[in-house]
């Protein structure tokens, strides 16, 4: 059962990482707008700012 001594801290550590990620999301305002980002993904407009995408864009 000695393996538990390693496994439990590991499990806890993973859980804490998740919690830290959640806090980081909150701090960076990811829960402020729950509708917009879902649609923002579909936008291609940001490609225009990227020079490498230039050839694909009709000007």
């Amino acid at each position: 059962m000695d393996i538990l001594v390693i496994l439990f801290p590991l499990a806890l550590g993973l859980g804490l990482t998740g919690l830290a990620a959640f806090f980081w999301c909150m701090r960076s305002g990811q829960f402020v707008d729950l509708e917009g980002p879902g649609w923002r993904v579909l936008s291609d407009e940001d490609l225009r700012a990227d020079p490498r995408a230039e050839p694909h864009e009709p000007r």
């Binding site: 707008d33 509708e35 917009g36 923002r40 936008s43 407009e45």
Partner: peptide
């Protein structure tokens, strides 16, 4: 949302526009 953000972003004077759709 796209119309507003892109329309405003195309303007030189405006640094950024961010819509909160909710």
């Amino acid at each position: 949302m796209h119309a507003i953000e892109n329309g405003l972003a195309a303007d030189r004077d405006i640094l950024g526009a961010r819509v909160n759709l909710a």
